[in-house]
């Protein structure tokens, strides 16, 4: 009767895990991602407290000064301390992007779930609206928003959130539609469960990993969008500066290889690469199971 339970064979360890096994490499890259992201998150909170100089003070007579013990990242085009300015820019870059990503994903996932669960008529309305939004190029949309409402932190968050919500909606809706057709959701329906129970207990938990991956990707896109906006001078307005505006301000130092332009660029790169590595390791875990 219970034949199937006895089919586990005696497990004999024949070999120790080797470090080169793919499993390890994957989790190491995930670890690097985690460290990078964790580092920047911490800096965005405590960074301003570490800054050796007020970020907007002219502290040196040399412009585009080199790295030194006095100025770790050199000085910028007005002789301000670059290290302090990068630290001061961190909360802008990360905070604004994070707020926008959370808003985009929340709105996207909620509307996606509603569309998947609702009647075809509601689904149609939501989907077409989102399609209309997605067809506007995000940079163009951002330019229009800033041109009509001016550049401020709330407007930037709103702009990025609206520009990236439809992508999140599409992913969430297709995931939810897929999960909804799975047999275990049908079982819950047949049991007579309410829609909220089905969504929160059966559907949402099974979408979590891909939605999280999407969240990370979207965060990277938004960081890049905001940096690009700042680079064009339409983002955070001087004297405050996020990393994107730091790059733009100091673009003149590019020819001389000044750290003032390289350092904020590296900051952007490490943050986005870190998030990417982290996402990849989350994604591959879900594949393994």
């Amino acid at each position: 009767m219970n034949t199937h339970t006895s089919s586990v064979t005696a497990a004999e360890p024949t070999q120790k895990a080797s470090f080169s096994s793919r499993f390890h490499v994957r989790s190491i890259s995930g670890l690097i991602g985690l460290i990078l992201v964790g580092f920047w998150l911490v800096i965005s909170v405590i960074g301003p407290m570490l800054s050796p100089y007020p970020p907007n003070d002219f502290v040196s007579n040399t412009v585009f000064g080199p790295m030194s013990m006095k100025h770790f990242f050199g000085t910028d085009y007005l002789g301000r301390d670059m290290f302090s300015r990068v630290l001061a820019g961190t909360p802008y870059t990360i905070g604004v992007a994070l707020a926008a990503t959370v808003a985009a994903c929340l709105a996207g996932v909620i509307s996606g779930l509603v569309a998947a669960a609702a009647t075809s008529w509601v689904d149609m309305t939501i989907s077409r609206t989102q399609d209309a939004l997605i067809s506007i190029p995000s940079k163009m949309f951002a330019l229009i928003m800033v041109a009509s409402f001016g550049s401020s932190v709330p407007i930037l968050i709103l702009t990025a959130a609206i520009a990236y919500m439809p992508g999140s909606f599409r992913i969430a809706r297709s995931l939810a539609v897929n999960v909804m057709t799975l047999d275990y959701v049908q079982v819950a329906r047949l049991r007579g469960e309410s829609m909220p129970y089905i969504i929160f207990k059966e559907v949402l938990p099974n979408m979590f990993r891909p939605v999280l991956t999407d969240f990370g990707l979207r965060f990277v896109f938004i960081v890049l969008l905001l940096s690009a906006m700042s680079f064009l001078g339409l983002g955070i307005q001087p004297p405050e500066a996020d990393w994107g505006s730091l790059v733009r301000e100091n673009i003149g130092g590019l020819s001389s290889g000044a750290p003032a332009v390289i350092m904020p660029a590296i900051a952007i790169a490490t943050l986005t690469i870190g998030v990417n590595l982290l996402i990849d390791s989350i994604g591959s875990k879900s594949v393994q199971h």
């Binding site: 064979t9 497990a11 004999e12 360890p13 024949t14 070999q15 499993f23």
Partner: peptide
Amino acid sequence: RTGAGVDVP
């Protein structure tokens, strides 16, 4: 090879 890196025949 199991997750723990042990070989099971």
